[in-house]
Amino acid sequence: MKKILVTGAKGQLGSELMVLSKNYPQFEWIFADRTQVSLDNLSILQIQVEAISPNIILNCGAYTAVDKAETEHELADIVNHSAVGIIAQYAEDHSVKLIHISTDYVFDGTSAFALSEEALTQPVNVYGATKRAGELACLKANPDAIIIRTSWVYSRFGNNFVKTMQRLLLERDTISVVNDQIGSPTYAADLAQAMMTIVTAPEWIAGIYNYSNEGEISWYDFVLAIQEIDGYSCEVKGILSSAYPTPAKRPAYSLLDKTKIKRVYGISVPDYKESLKKSLKFNSLV
């Protein structure tokens, strides 16, 4: 029986993979949190992975605190870059299949059209820079790896934008949300399914792939969708990013083109609103 190692098991994507794992009993699943696979401790990371001895690695662990990364550059780089290189080298040396998760934040946000896998990368913050460095380290150590870039991830698990907005919509009379950052959200359960479609496909085709739900929206539009589905009465106002400054700059436009993953692996990508409805059924506050 082949063994699948999932890093970052307690994160949103790792948690959704745990739910999905019951549909794949042909695999032995190892869900490793940061104590079992310590992405922030390079001296023991390889030893930990070797002890598990997986056939497949789904690297979902990452440093994702985008604003905090501006002051914790070293830690973000260890987790998002150096640890990825170690895992990728292990996978290469032991003929292990590796899917590594990356982000739309590798782009600078100046595009006016959906970004393909070949689009120029030019991160505008520390988080994006460390994730891009991780991509390069992964591909250098292991050309047979698959990297999936995703964006605006949310799920029923953990803390995320959707849950925060639900709480604010319930508690406040008015909220303001940026309307000049464009992209598409990703329901982690859909991404988990896409990953398993790749794992179980008859052919492994290495490279970078994009995955997010369908739709081209702003964060403001996303909140309006949450409000529409759950029926909140709060007034939602659109504002410019300049009116809501954050330590880390965000890309203004980072919509991902999913043509490649659909064509190569025949993956069906749900519309963002349909996936949002599914997620909200698990955590409606109304």
Results as ranks from 00 to 15, higher is better:
Ile175Thr: 11
Ser176Thr: 13
Val178Phe: 06
Val178Arg: 15
Asn179Cys: 10
Asn179Leu: 01
Gln181Asp: 04
Gln181His: 15
Ile182Tyr: 09
Gly183Val: 00
Ser184Cys: 08
Pro185Cys: 04
Pro185Lys: 09
Thr186Tyr: 11
Tyr187Asn: 12
Ala188Met: 06
Ala188Gln: 11
Ala188Val: 05
Ala188Arg: 13
Ala189Tyr: 08
Ala192Tyr: 10
Gln193Ser: 14
Ala194Arg: 07
Met195Gln: 12
Met195Trp: 03
Met196Arg: 07
Thr197Asn: 10
Ile198Ala: 02
Val199Asn: 01
Ala201Glu: 02
Pro202Trp: 13
Glu203Tyr: 12
Trp204Thr: 04
Ile205Leu: 08
Ile205Cys: 08
Ile205Ser: 14
Asn210Cys: 02
Tyr211Gln: 13
Asn213Met: 07
Glu214Met: 10
Gly215Arg: 08
Glu216Ser: 11
Ile217Gln: 01
Trp219Met: 04
Tyr220Asp: 00
Asp221Asn: 10
Asp221His: 11
Asp221Phe: 00
Asp221Ala: 00
Phe222Val: 00
Val223Glu: 00
Ala225Cys: 05
Ile226Val: 13
Gln227Phe: 02
Glu228Arg: 14
Glu228Leu: 03
Ile229Val: 13
Asp230Cys: 14
Gly231Phe: 05
Tyr232Phe: 15
Ser233Ala: 15
Glu235Asp: 14
Glu235Ala: 14
Lys237Trp: 05
Lys237Leu: 12
Lys237Asp: 04
Gly238Cys: 03
Leu240Cys: 11
Ser241Arg: 15
Ser241Glu: 09
Ser242Met: 08
Tyr244Val: 10
Pro245Cys: 08
Thr246Asp: 04
Thr246Phe: 06
Pro247Cys: 04
Pro247Asn: 11
Ala248His: 10
Ala248Ser: 15
Lys249Tyr: 02
Arg250Val: 02
Tyr253Asn: 08
Tyr253Trp: 06
Leu255Val: 12
Leu256Gly: 14
Lys260Met: 02
Lys260Thr: 05
Ile261Trp: 05
Ile261Thr: 05
Lys262Pro: 02
Lys262Phe: 00
Arg263Leu: 07
Arg263Thr: 12
Val264Thr: 14
Val264Ala: 02
Tyr265Gly: 06
Gly266Leu: 00
Ile267Trp: 06
Ser268Thr: 12
Val269Arg: 09
Val269Leu: 04
Pro270Cys: 06
Pro270Ser: 10
Asp271Trp: 12
Asp271Gly: 13
Tyr272Arg: 09
Tyr272Asn: 09
Tyr272Met: 05
Ser275Gln: 07
Leu276Arg: 11
Leu276Cys: 06
Leu276Thr: 05
Leu276Lys: 11
Lys278Tyr: 01
Leu280Arg: 09
Lys281His: 01
Lys281Ile: 00
Lys281Asn: 03
Lys281Cys: 00
Asn283Pro: 00
Ser284Trp: 01
Leu285Phe: 12
Leu285His: 14
Leu285Lys: 15
